[in-house]
Nucleic acid binder design. Sequence first.
DNA 1: TATTAAAATAAACAGTGTTTATTAACTTTG
DNA 2: CAAAGTTAATAAACACTGTTTATTTTAATA
Lengths: 205, 205
Amino acid sequence: MGISERKQREKEEMRRLILQTAMRLFTERGFESVSIRNIAEEIEYSPATIYLYFKDKNELLHHLHEEGFRILHIQMQRIAQLGDPLEKLMALSKVYIDFGLNHPEMYDLMFILNAPMNYLEEDEAWTEGEGTFKFLVDVIIACQQEGRFAGKNPLQLALMCWSFVHGLVSLEIRHRTRVCSRMQLPQGDYMEMCRIYFNETLTKL
Amino acid sequence: MGISERKQREKEEMRRLILQTAMRLFTERGFESVSIRNIAEEIEYSPATIYLYFKDKNELLHHLHEEGFRILHIQMQRIAQLGDPLEKLMALSKVYIDFGLNHPEMYDLMFILNAPMNYLEEDEAWTEGEGTFKFLVDVIIACQQEGRFAGKNPLQLALMCWSFVHGLVSLEIRHRTRVCSRMQLPQGDYMEMCRIYFNETLTKL
DNA sequence: TATTAAAATAAACAGTGTTTATTAACTTTG
DNA sequence: CAAAGTTAATAAACACTGTTTATTTTAATA
């Protein structure tokens, strides 16, 4: 009997419709301006219906944050084709920064907002973040196999690199780089800073 | 006639009472769990009274964020007494990171949350942030006067340093360093990372 | 077709930031 | 001192929020 299979399929389609609509509204209006009611209205269902497909708003946001990681990982795939590990590191940071600046709402959800983390249990792993982090660690280990960053803990170096680019993106997204706009610092020249960081400083290790 | 002066003083006292109570509740329970009604209840006034002293919640949060900068600046004063500019840079980053980790709610408000920025007009300066940033820039210029970081834009270097430490603190505060807890990276060894960043890499410029 | 199971919803609950009309308190003036 | 005027405080409402429960509608099975 294919009915239960069709129902399963319809349920899955509904979940995707909700997620898709939510994603569109969030990126259009921002997270602070979209409610469960707004999403329900957009898909022409009652608010309570959404709770038949998602436990609460945190679960919904967690799923959207997973979707964000899928998009980021697609961008990251291209880096694997590069030869030089240090070039990989530069390219990875460019992909990361571009992603953050081009999809600020998505980046917010993935790396700044509490909601998707609140969905996780106390000791539950943040698998999406771990996957991305491991990608960075592997690039750094590849650098070390070429003799760079000798004797340094690759995890520590990875966290340092991540902190640097996350700092740049999150200060920008949350409008703290306003301090620079009054000064003569050329705005948005993030890759130049990455070049200094990776090519001129980190490589000296 | 000292009556209007007394009234002025009472108004100021009330403002301070509200701010003080708000600060206490926010640091106790976190920003997401404290409402205007909670603050009003705590000081035994009606919610509407708070709106006689502050235009809206953004203004209240902006004032609290100013208070946070005052606390941070007090910590930063001690650095002026140090001789070596590079030591100053290290000490400054330590003060900044310690502040963030010891006062996560305050740091959140100052460098992550949108609210205090939303209070500012479109083209209005973020004076608190600029003051702190300028302090960092001056330390870096002092380093350059000793021959370090030759030919580099001090503002750019300042943003790089800030991004690095902000990245560390904000990833920690928003629970993204969870990715490290599963791996063998020693948690919370932020000053070691700063040492590598400032002493082993930046100084090579 | 009647019964059973599933899906969707209306309505309510408890909360939020904020505004308005009303009351209470105090200051100034006649 | 009492009346008028001014300021401070509030009760109540508005338009929201996330979420739950009891009810109704829809669809599948017997």
